[in-house]
Amino acid sequence: MVLVVLGIDALDPELVDSTAHPNLTLDAHRAIETIESEEGGPSTHELWPTIITGLTPPEHGITLDDGVAWENPLLRFGSAAADYLLPSGLQTRLGAWLLNNTEQDAFRIPATYYEEEGLSTVFDGREAAPIGIPNYVVDPDSEDREHSLRRNLGDLFERDLEAKGGHSSTDPALFYEQCLEMSMVRIARARRALRGGRYELVFAYTSGLDLIGHVAYEQPELQDLAYDELDEFVGEVRGDLGDDDELLLVSDHGLQDGVHTDEAMVAGTDEAMVDAIASVVDVRDAIESELDERDHRPTRRATAATGSDSGQSEEVREHLEDLGYM
């Protein structure tokens, strides 16, 4: 048995419909409470650490500083200096400029942070595959196609403090295509981890829906189309499930008119698991209860490669790395 969790950033409970989106609503779905940042509005930077730890942002310590995530090495010094030297409004504009004009990713806190801070996560002691979780980076020296695309969006996605959603794009249609490619990559990685049968928990995250929502305030049809396509992608994961496997969808907040909203959502193939989640802080407990109460020990669907087969597997991995998919 495998529990697959898909973290879909900005999946909004008011924008899904069980008839139009059967795979985004599954057998049960509900709106859940999220947490607003001290800087205003729910923050992706803070909320995924909350979802995997069950702790509020002040408890896990990963918080937003004046609207900008300063934790990456390039921005950390700027934050410390800005606190003493710059008015708050100028700090925000400086942060927006830095994020637009560097290739730094704001969501790359390593997984080692949690152990160093004495924090436990839903992955501890499990045969788990965490895929792309913001601020839980297993290998900071590697990135997949979603990370690469997000880092190199350039003027397709810029912080714009004057824009309705705080972001703008020079080409929303092309931006849409890149965001959907990002989602497809993460969905494909989740499917591969499920099919491999090596894990009891597969937890994959994608930001494509959130990114599209931030620039679709003038073209809402793009956001509508993204929901339709994402429903199809999740349907592919659902089709891979075995009779005893379960699927849970989780969001950190909603997003309408380009702005984060204060409702997140969950959906799942197990109604009891969905019922157990009333807030983003409940997700970890619900996942662990599911894993503890049922046998989710990995059952490999393919025999581990040995000898020359192992060499071929390594060649395949290297080829995927060369193509940018690993």
Rank of each mutant, 00 (worst) to 15 (best):
D12E: 05
R198C: 08
R300T: 12
A106S: 14
D228A: 15
A267H: 04
L90Y: 08
D160V: 06
D240H: 09
T53L: 06
S142Y: 13
D171H: 09
A106N: 09
T102L: 11
L99D: 12
G307E: 07
L323W: 11
T19S: 03
Q312I: 15
Y325N: 07
G95L: 07
T121N: 03
M184Y: 10
S251N: 01
A129W: 07
I52H: 00
E36L: 05
G154I: 11
D12P: 05
G61E: 02
V16R: 01
V202K: 04
A10N: 10
S313G: 07
H147K: 10
E232C: 01
W70Y: 12
Y325T: 13
A304W: 09
L211P: 01
G41K: 00
N135L: 12
E115N: 11
E71G: 02
L55G: 09
G125H: 00
E46G: 03
E177L: 13
G132N: 14
L11G: 03
H45Q: 05
I131S: 06
L90I: 14
D295M: 10
E181V: 11
Q256F: 04
D245K: 03
K164M: 07
D12V: 06
V280S: 01
L222S: 01
A106T: 14
G311T: 14
V137R: 14
V237K: 09
L241M: 08
A304L: 13
V281D: 01
R76G: 02
D245C: 02
A10L: 05
S289R: 10
F77Q: 12
V138P: 09
G78N: 09
V122L: 05
L15K: 13
L241P: 07
G132V: 08
S313E: 15
R300M: 14
D141F: 11
H167V: 10
H147A: 14
H29F: 15
I8K: 00
D141E: 15
F175A: 13
V137A: 09
G242A: 10
P49E: 03
P73H: 00
D243G: 08
R145W: 12
A302S: 12
Y113N: 04
E236D: 13
Q256G: 09
I187P: 00
